[in-house]
């Protein structure tokens, strides 16, 4: 369910950061591929009454149950498309699912020298890189759910 960007097809250097670039509410975000454990079609979330910010439900994938982090809500966005995708990430407390736009994510390799500090406080980021006029934040998966 991935397509490689042109840059990814180039030979990567040992120091480069392999990223997965995806969209939420039309906004482009990136995550290190190491932090991704899967992408699948989104199954309807089972809401859980609770008070943890943006950890709003569960998704069942066969015999596996994953908590859902509502990334779109944390960014005050709405997931786009009629067939959204499920991005499963490796969180330190266990795998976690996020609903993302139906737009197919792309792989991108980033030169660490081009990574800058992400100044906005709207999401936990390890930094950002620019793609044309866009600044694309690189999600800090380990801090999701604790600092947003």
């Amino acid at each position: 369910m991935l397509r490689a960007s042109h840059k990814y097809q180039r030979e990567t250097t040992r120091q480069s950061w392999p990223l997965l670039v995806f969209s939420v509410g039309g906004r482009r975000l990136a995550v290190k591929t190491f932090d991704v454990s899967g992408i699948s079609l989104w199954n309807e979330s089972i809401p859980v009454a609770g008070r943890t910010p943006f950890v709003t439900g569960l998704v069942r994938q066969g015999q596996t149950v994953l908590p859902v982090f509502d990334l779109a809500a944390s960014l005050r966005l709405t997931v786009q498309g009629s067939s959204p995708l499920c991005l499963t990430i490796r969180h330190p407390l266990g795998e976690m699912a996020m609903c993302i736009d139906e737009e197919i994510p792309v792989l991108h390799t980033c030169d660490p020298a081009t990574i800058q500090t992400y100044q906005n406080k709207d999401l936990p980021a390890e930094g950002s890189y620019t793609n044309g006029l866009d600044e694309i934040p690189i999600l800090s998966v380990s801090r999701l759910g604790s600092t947003v």
């Binding site: 009454a49 609770g50 008070r51 943890t52 950890v55 908590p67 407390l93 266990g94 976690m96």
Partner: peptide, 16 residues
């Protein structure tokens, strides 16, 4: 209950 649920709901539910 997954550890990501870290609010008072941990006391509301005993599991799934």
């Amino acid at each position: 209950l997954p550890m990501q649920f870290c609010g008072p709901e941990r006391h509301w539910y005993q599991g799934m």
